[in-house]
């Protein structure tokens, strides 16, 4: 039994991931914004009814950067030592909107990247001292190559990917696993409005892949796995072709 902290627990992939982790008998702390309290309470009830595990709820807001470290300390005090942490909060606003509105772009960057650095960095320090732990965060295939349709989100995710890579390097040999998950389009509220229905992966399948990757101590996974190959091709497309594509 381990204690897992899920940050951004109401997000579309975090919900089934919390269930996967709970099904392995772990204690779960579901963290999200206070305005989502009803949903978080319901999720805690769900985890308890499904798997008979203890689930707690706590509140933080990713845009309040200066309070994030205190929040982690508080969770450790009330919930217990954090053995695993998932940063699942994320925001994907329409690219056009972000291009025109720097404030919105900056806020999205705070949520997608800066908050993760604060929360995971602080948790990592604690884990480093204890020499055990799991750290999980979400990159994205969108962060593999800048595309006109989605590069502000992609840049956030590329930054997070690099942060996780560095963290992994730093913590190598200290019995801490650092996993970057790059999910393809998944059927969650974040991708609502993307019209092709069968194109999207089921969040339950994505969550199962992630849980298995944690068990197997993987470093970077794409899920569904086909995205590794698709992005490999896209990354290596020569510029004279790439610039003509409407991606």
């Amino acid at each position: 039994m381990k204690n897992w902290l899920i940050l951004g627990a109401t997000s579309g992939i975090a919900v089934p991931l919390a269930r996967e982790l709970a099904s392995r008998g772990n204690r779960i702390c579901l963290a999200g914004r206070r305005e989502n309290s009803k949903r978080l309470e319901l999720l805690a009830q769900d985890l308890n009814a499904r798997f008979g595990v203890e689930a707690a709820v706590s509140y933080f807001d990713a845009v309040e950067l200066e309070r994030l470290e205190a929040f982690i300390d508080e969770v450790e005090e009330t919930f217990g030592r954090i053995d695993g942490v998932v940063y699942a909060a994320g925001l994907m606003e329409p690219q056009l909107h972000l291009q025109r509105d720097f404030t919105a772009a900056r806020r999205q960057h705070d949520i997608n990247y800066m908050a993760a650095v604060g929360l995971l960095g602080h948790t990592a320090r604690k884990m480093e001292a204890r020499r055990r732990g799991h750290i999980v965060a979400f990159g994205s295939p969108a962060g593999d190559r800048g595309r006109r349709s989605n590069y502000l989100y992609g840049a956030d995710k590329a930054a997070l990917h690099l942060f996780m890579e560095g963290l992994r390097h730093r913590l190598a040999g200290k019995r801490i696993t650092v996993l970057t998950v790059k999910p393809g389009p998944t059927d969650t509220p974040m991708t609502a409005g993307m019209r092709k229905p069968r194109f999207k992966a089921r969040p339950e399948d994505v969550a199962r892949d992630i849980a298995r990757a944690i068990d197997d101590k993987r470093t970077v996974i794409y899920t569904p796995a086909k995205w590794r190959y698709i992005m490999c091709v896209i990354r290596h497309l020569p510029w004279f072709i790439f610039k003509r594509l409407n991606l």
């Binding site: 999720l43 009814a49 499904r50």
Partner: peptide, 9 residues
């Protein structure tokens, strides 16, 4: 999809 909570068992 999101109204999928198990409430009591």
């Amino acid at each position: 999809n999101s109204l999928d909570h198990l409430l009591t068992f």
